[in-house]
Design a protein around this nucleic acid. Structure first.
Lengths: 190, 190
DNA sequence: TTATCAAGTTGAACTTGTTCAACTATTTTA
DNA sequence: TAAAATAGTTGAACAAGTTCAACTTGATAA
C-alpha cells in the first residue's frame, strides 16, 4: 500500500487507532516530481505539506551574493515544505528541488485545516513532530557554532550516509555553509 | 493578575475560550530565581517548561574547548526550557542561568501531560508555538550561514534591543558564535 | 561519439575570525 | 572603601575559510 511508509512514520511519533491513521493518510495525494524540477520556488506560496516516498529533495535559499545555501535535504521518510510560507500563506524564500526522480504525498493547506478539525489526534501528532524538529534545529545550530567545517562534514556523512551518497560535494558544501572549493581541500587533507 | 502576561502570550497563538485559558494557566506555578542562579544545569533532567514573567535567562552549552555557546536568551514573554531533555526525560546538555533577578511560571512534566489530556485545545496551542519556533530556528541558521558576524550583531541588537541592553558583550558574542575579543574589534570598526 | 556543460581540484592572495597575552575599565563583594 | 573579580580593549601571530582563475574529470545530450 502506498501509505505504508507514511503510517510507519506517524507511528514513530504517536500511537493512534487505525481509523485515525487511515483518515489522516486519506488526505495525502501522491505526486511525481522528475529530477531537477521544483516543488516550490522562491516568491511563490507553499500550498502543501509533503512526505517523501522516493527520491530526494534539496531545500535551499539563494542569498544576496547568489550563493545557494541549503537548509536541509529530504529523502525517503522525511517531511518537506516551507513551514513559514505554509503557515502564514506568504511568499516563500525557499526553493525545493528534486535531485532525483521523486515521489511525494502532499496535503493541501485547506485539507490540513480540515484534518485538524476532523481528526483531533492530528494536533498531537504534528505537535510532537514539530517539537522533535526544534531539537534537531537547535542541535544543528550548536554544531555550526562549536565545530569546524571538517567535523560538520564528517558528522553529516556518517549520520546520513544514505542521503550523502546521493549528493554532489557542491550540494553538501551548500548545506555545511562552506564553499565547494574549501570542501574539496578538507577532503584532501583527511 | 500574575497570569495576565501568559494569557496574552497564549492569545497571540490561538484564540481559546476563557475557561480553557484559565485551566491552562492554573497548571503554572510561579518561581523566583535570583541573579546568577540556575534553573537547569548540564547533566540534570529538565522537569519543567517555563514562561518568563520578569528578568532574563541565558540558555547555553559548554563545548569541548570550554567555550560557553549561547542557544538563546529568554526575557519577559519568552518560553524557557530544554525541550529535548523535557520531552525525553534525558540528561540535559544545557545550562539555564538567570542573568537578572527573575520570575517564571513553571509547569511540571506530569502536569503538562495532564494538561494535554484534560484541555485538548492545549495541543493546538503548543503545536502552533512549536511551528513558529521552527521558523525562527531555520531563519537563525540561514543568518549564520549567509551573514558575517558584524551583520549578525547588528541584526540582534536591532531586533531585540530590550534584551541586548541587559547583556554583556561577552554574552552577546557567545550567542553570535564568535569570541568576545572579535566582537570588541567589530564594534570598534563600525 | 564528440561536443558541451557541470562537478571537482588546486594554488595564490585575501578576508574573517581565533588565540594568547597584556592591559584598562567597571562591577562586585568583603 | 579597598580589594578582587569580571568585562572590555588592543596587538601580533595564527588558523579557518573565501575568492578567483585555471585546470581536470566526469556526465549528458545532440
Amino acid at each position: 500500500m502506498i501509505n505504508d511508509l507514511l503510517i510507519q512514520n506517524i507511528k514513530k511519533n504517536v500511537s493512534l487507532p487505525d481509523t485515525d491513521l487511515k483518515r489522516i493518510c486519506n488526505y495525502f495525494k501522491p505526486k511525481t516530481i522528475p529530477k531537477k524540477e521544483f516543488l516550490l520556488t522562491q516568491g511563490s506560496i507553499c500550498k502543501f505539506e509533503g512526505f517523501v516516498l522516493e527520491g530526494c529533495f534539496r531545500i535551499f535559499i539563494i542569498d544576496k551574493k547568489g550563493h545557494e545555501n541549503t537548509l536541509y535535504f529530504a529523502a525517503k521518510d522525511w517531511w518537506v515544505m516551507d513551514i513559514d510560507s505554509f503557515m502564514n500563506q506568504k511568499p516563500s524564500d525557499l526553493n525545493i528541488q528534486a535531485i532525483e526522480d521523486s515521489k511525494v504525498l502532499l496535503i493541501t493547506r485547506e485539507d490540513k485545516t480540515d484534518l485538524y478539525n476532523s481528526v483531533p489526534s492530528a494536533e498531537k501528532l504534528f505537535r510532537i513532530m514539530s517539537q522533535k524538529s526544534i531539537v534537531a534545529w537547535q542541535q544543528r545550530l550548536i554544531r555550526n557554532h562549536c565545530q569546524t567545517a571538517k567535523d560538520r562534514y564528517n558528522y553529516y556523512i556518517s549520520t546520513y550516509p544514505d542521503i550523502a551518497s546521493k549528493l554532489t560535494d557542491k550540494q553538501i558544501a551548500g548545506y555545511l555553509g562552506i564553499t565547494h572549493e574549501f570542501l574539496s581541500k578538507i577532503k584532501k587533507k583527511s
